[in-house]
Design a protein around this nucleic acid. Structure first.
Lengths: 112, 112
DNA sequence: CATAGCACTATGTCTTGTCAAGCACTTGAC
DNA sequence: GTCAAGTGCTTGACAAGACATAGTGCTATG
């Protein structure tokens, strides 16, 4: 691990994006803002402990904004900030790649 | 976790790309093919066990090609397949985002 | 002939994510 | 009024994953 990498913004953001669930969270929030449990379900099985941790981190980094609408009954919304929304480009790139290279296993339509 | 996600290629590829070191490995190999130890150093401190595991996986998925030049003194080269090279778009998107949003908040240069 | 390189594998440890449960409270059904 | 189900989380084991480190078998260089 050399020093150059530690200060390379690309290296840093890869480190962020490779954290488990982060990309899924971003992708989900790109669709629309969501509450905690809703997000948890939409994201596909991330457990609340991890999700809370990720959301904290993303909020700290200024990618996600948390809004508390009411304390009691608890109601919260997580939405992307402009910086977070700019990750659309990354998701799009993944999307494009996925459709090209990961779609193949169609091969269904098994006849008899 | 609902069924749709399990068959969504985007979901699948996010799962792949979020594995630790995968994006770093891809990014490094996009520059040029490398040997094992060379790759390990260039990638920035991934330990050999993990690296070997990731490379196996990437090879299985057809993103990386492993070439053994000689067995005894061992010499190997890892390079991206066309499918792997297409991930350039993803790395580029991350690159663009990183330069826009991650360059600022360093705030280092702390004096004494 | 010692050292350093290559490509890895094996080991034990430590960090991370996961699971299940629970908290405090509201809402809606009965 | 009581019950189940929902909200947004937190906590405390536990398992899976990544870590550092050492070692293998061999060559090439000093």
């Amino acid at each position: 691990m050399n020093d150059e990498q530690q200060f390379c913004p690309v290296y840093q953001s890869i480190n962020l994006l490779q954290e488990k669930w982060v990309l899924h969270i971003i992708r989900t929030l790109l669709e629309e803002p969501r509450g905690f449990n809703e997000l948890s379900r939409a994201v596909g099985g991330c457990n609340p402990a991890t999700l809370a941790q990720r959301l904290d981190r993303l909020e700290e980094m200024g990618l996600v904004k948390k809004t508390v609408h009411s304390v009691m009954p608890p109601r919260t919304t997580y939405q992307l900030t402009p910086a977070g929304r700019d990750l659309q480009g990354v998701i799009d790139a993944i999307d494009r790649w996925a459709r090209q290279h990961l779609n193949i296993p169609v091969k269904a339509a098994s006849p008899r």
